[in-house]
Structure formats: structure tokens, C-alpha cells
Design a protein around this nucleic acid. Structure first.
Lengths: 246, 246
DNA sequence: AACGGATAAGCTGCATACAGGTTTTGAGTC
DNA sequence: GACTCAAAACCTGTATGCAGCTTATCCGTT
């Protein structure tokens, strides 16, 4: 787990998969903010490997559209355009309802405990907010939800849209801390209720509901009033990306 | 367009993206059948590049689960397990209905002509069936449907599931030629009707319907009676893949 | 003849050198 | 001082060599 520690002395052998998920993790967690440049040589030094596996790892996440590599320039983290954010969220709203429909796995006692734990932590967070903790609790919630999905394809798509939505969504946690914590507690409370009944379908619809709320917050505070300097710089980059996508 | 011609003399510079889509194309079109081994050195010689861009291209399609690379062994094309086929088709049934829902682009006269052309070709095919022609007409139909999708994320997912379903689905065209051609004509007829009304939503539901039929054919002729020797050898490989996925 | 083990062949994984492209810098000129 | 253009710095893209792993082969033994 080398998200914070740079582990130069550790003799651990990193696989391409490790590096891939670590880079993606850093993008989702805003360790790499939109606009930031990823240098292959730098990462290679950090992970104690050559540029080759780094290139490989970056190439393998390129299909998510979160990074853009240009010859002679570098690999930059791109923020999604407003249109892309809309597309991702519209899709997530649809996928959410399928979580409980497409052969979900049975709910166990461990699930109830997992959500209980998250709920406690979220309540603590409500008292003393910290963006990083918020992101981490949310991430673990997402991992749990994903584990419910029995359909491999849906699980893959659900994860992809999460990664795409995360960096935009988590940008909010720097300014709307109060709302975010309250919303998270509310979501976990709803999930808790559904778990008592053991209704997997309900979990999907609860997800849908709260994704809708989150989308609304993004529209209100990020898309409507573009006050965030990160969003401003990112808009230029994503503009470039659009013309290539189209 | 080097699917059939091996173009050793041509001085064209292939980008990694070219190679990537070409390899994927060959897998979908069954030029590379499940179980076949892709050798980096071989492909490198064919495209007139070194192993590096070939590796890059293969790595970029690895997330689809259609190829599996093992150290010291090679990269083999894998057939999806029966569970994975079910997952992909269940997902495609859901995605199909979203085509007309999630901001599709307007239908033009060019669309009507495109489908008309395909319908004519399909009717010809019905008289004299040829697996390759069937695959190509179907592929162009898929490209057209994809072009209707206005939501970037949905378009990406739709394409991914097509690639995953294609090689399984097209395996049928070798044995059930008559059914397949008739079904294709019927599908195009339905689409033709929907286009006259200009109803994009209907197109999505028509897709859903015919994907359901295709799924049924696969269940009947591939999954129930495992007579195909390709499927038998592929099952071993995909078995390996499963334990890794899980 | 059947079996076991060393060896050779063949593949991918990684490191490194170099080529090609882009941006920045700085000297020279008007 | 502002502007132009060349060169240097820095990045990614590609080729290549070697190390490591896996499998097939073949010889020696039982």
C-alpha cells in the first residue's frame, strides 16, 4: 500500500497491475489533480522500475479517458468535460438499478457489519470533516457495493464509471464538506435499512437515488459556477480531448 | 485496412492505435480463433515495427478479457466462459434499451439509406450464405447503431460488449447459416420500419429483441450441445481465466 | 519400453539507448 | 525594449539486448 509512502528502499517487486491500479487510485483520490503531468521517468524512479512497465500501466488505463499522452509533451491528467460528466452520471444512474437485478450475490452478516462500520466512521467525519477521510470512506463503500455485483460485465462497467466520476465528485469535498458528510451518513443509513430487510434490489435503487443527489451537487457547485481554479485549467485540457473523442 | 493483406512492402507507419484496433478486429472476426497464440515477434514482423508497440497494443485491449498473456508462454485468445457469455448478454440486453434513451443523435436520410443498403446485402446473403460476409454486414450494422449513441460512456460500453460477444456469436455463423441470415434480414426489416417513423427509442428495443434471439441461439447451439471442438479447447483456457477473475 | 531429468528452444518481462517531437530559453537583431 | 530564430532541454515513441520463465525435446537409466 504505497499511496502516501514513496517506498524507495523497499525491495518489493511491483507488477504492471500494481502500478496501474496505484496510478488510477491516485487520480481518483486527486493525488494527481486534473492538469497535472505524469512523467514516466519520475514514476519509474519512484517504483524502482524502468519506464517500460510504467508506460504499460498508463497505456492500460488510457481507455478510461482520464489521462492523455502526447508525444514530446507528456501524460497529463484530464478533467472530464461537462458533457462527459453528464454522460458518466447518466450511465451510472442506469447501472445502479442493475446492481440488484443482474444476479447479485447473497447478503451476509458480514455485509451488515461492514456498512455499520462505515456508518460509524461517517458520523465521526460529520463532526470533524477531512476531505481525505471522506474520500477513503466513500471508496470503501464503493468497493463493498461493487462486491455485491454478480455480473462480471456490470462490475467492470460500474468500476469504470466510478473512476471516471470520482475525481470530479471528490473535488467537491474541498468546499462542500458539510453537505457531503451529511449526504454520506444519509446514504449509509438507507443502505443499513435495506440490509436489514436483505433486499439487494433496494440497494441498487438507493445507489441510484444518492448518485442523483451527488450529480445535482456537482451541477450546482461545479458546473454552474466555475469558480474552481482547477476546473478552469482543466477545461482547456478537456477541450483538447473532446475534439479527439469526436 | 490490412485485415487480409499482410502488407510487408507497404511503407505505412502503423500507430499503436491502428495495431490495437486491427488485433481486436481480427479477434472479433475470428481470424484469431479462441485458443490461438499471438506471438509478439510475429506481429512485429507483420506490421514492420518492433515488439514494443505490439506489446502496447495488446496491453490496451487486455481489459476486455479476450486475450491472456502469461510470462514465458505467450498471449492466447480466450473464449469467454459460459458464465461470462451470460453476463455480457444480460448486460447487452440492458444497454440496448438505453441506446434510444440516453441522448441519441437525430436520425437522418443517410441513416435510412445505410440500413437499406445493408438490407439488400443481407437478402443477397440469404440466397448465397458466406460466414465472412455475414460477419462484415453485421459489423457494419453494429457500427451504424453505435453511431446513433450520443452518450460517450454508453457508446464505449456498447462497443466493449460487442467485442466480447462477437467471437462467440460469430462462431455460430459456421453452422447455423440459414437461421442467421434470416434473422439478420428480419432485424434489418424491423430497423427499417422504425427509421420510417424516426423513432430512436424503438431502435434500441428492436436491438434488445434481436440480441435476445441471438442469445437464445447461442444457448441452444453452443452452450447446450458442446459439439464444437473449438469451444471444447477454449473451455480449458477460459477456466484458467476464471480463477484469476474471481 | 517406459520413465526421469537435464538441456535446449521459445516466449514474455524489463532495462536501456536512441530517435523524433515539443517547449522553453536565450542570444542576436531591429 | 520587443521581436525572431536557433539551440538546448525535456518529454514520449521505438528498437534492441538480455534475463527469467515455461515447455518441449532428447538422452540416459531402470
Amino acid at each position: 500500500m504505497p499511496p502516501s509512502q514513496k517506498t524507495p528502499a523497499a525491495e518489493i517487486k511491483y507488477t504492471v497491475e500494481d502500478i496501474q491500479s496505484e496510478i488510477l487510485h491516485r487520480i481518483c483520490f486527486l493525488d494527481y489533480a486534473p492538469g497535472e503531468q505524469l512523467k514516466e521517468a519520475e514514476l519509474a524512479a519512484e517504483f524502482g522500475v524502468s519506464r517500460t512497465p510504467i508506460r504499460d500501466a498508463i497505456g492500460r488505463i488510457s481507455h478510461l479517458g482520464l489521462v492523455e499522452t502526447r508525444n514530446g509533451v507528456g501524460t497529463v491528467v484530464v478533467a472530464l468535460s461537462t458533457a462527459q460528466i453528464r454522460h458518466v452520471y447518466d450511465m451510472r444512474l442506469e447501472l445502479a438499478t442493475l446492481i440488484g437485478t443482474l444476479s447479485p450475490r447473497p447478503i451476509t452478516q458480514a455485509d451488515r457489519e461492514a456498512v455499520q462500520t462505515l456508518l460509524c466512521e461517517a458520523k465521526v467525519l460529520q463532526g470533524a470533516f477531512d476531505p481525505r477521510s471522506y474520500i477513503e470512506i466513500n471508496h470503501r463503500l464503493h468497493e463493498w457495493i461493487t462486491s455485491l455485483i454478480g455480473n462480471d460485465t456490470l462490475r467492470s462497467f460500474w468500476w469504470q464509471t466510478y473512476c471516471q466520476a470520482a475525481s470530479t465528485w471528490y473535488r467537491l469535498s474541498n468546499e462542500r464538506s458539510c453537505d457531503m458528510a451529511k449526504a454520506l451518513v444519509a446514504e449509509l443509513n438507507d443502505l443499513n435499512t435495506a440490509l436489514d430487510v436483505g433486499d439487494a434490489t433496494a440497494i441498487g435503487y438507493i445507489q441510484r437515488t444518492h448518485i442523483g443527489y451527488g450529480y445535482q451537487r456537482i451541477k450546482t457547485h461545479l458546473l454552474a459556477t466555475e469558480t474552481d481554479e482547477g476546473a478552469a485549467s482543466a477545461r482547456v485540457v478537456s477541450g483538447l480531448r473532446n475534439q479527439k473523442t469526436a
